[in-house]
């Protein structure tokens, strides 16, 4: 029986992972865009990205575009697998296979 992933299950982290998984492999989202898509605040989003990064589910790349710092977040292979497993578990719960 599959278990829900506690790291992904938190609502904001679920949105972050959903957004990153909607992109092709190795394509990331800029922090500002992720903020707009999830409706999170800077601090909140930063903290949850850090949690996902510590779990190895996302990678964070910081670079300068011109003089502006730009942070890009990308789902890792492990993150994609974990997210797919989490979604499958949610579907199983809805189908009544788990309580």
């Amino acid at each position: 029986m599959a278990e829900l992933d506690d790291i992904i299950h938190q609502p904001l982290r679920l949105k972050i992972m959903a957004a990153l998984n909607a992109l092709p492999v190795e394509v990331g989202l800029e922090f500002a865009r992720l903020k707009k898509l999830t409706g999170a605040t800077d601090g909140n989003l930063g903290a949850h990205i850090e949690t996902l990064a510590k779990a190895g589910y996302v990678s964070v790349e910081k670079a300068f575009v011109g003089k502006k710092p730009q942070t890009t977040v990308t789902a890792t292979a492990a993150g994609r697998v974990a997210f797919a497993r989490h979604v499958a578990t949610l579907q199983e719960i809805i189908a009544g296979k788990q309580l």
Binding site: H9, L14, K15, A19, A22, R33, K36, L37, V87, I93
Partner: peptide, 25 residues
């Protein structure tokens, strides 16, 4: 463990986020 209603809400959140990403692209 969560119930099917909460699971359904989580899936709706995922679908909504994916739709936003597609629209943004």
């Amino acid at each position: 463990m969560i119930d099917s209603k909460q699971a359904s809400e989580a899936l709706t959140d995922i679908e909504d986020t994916v739709r936003r990403v597609r629209q943004s692209q």
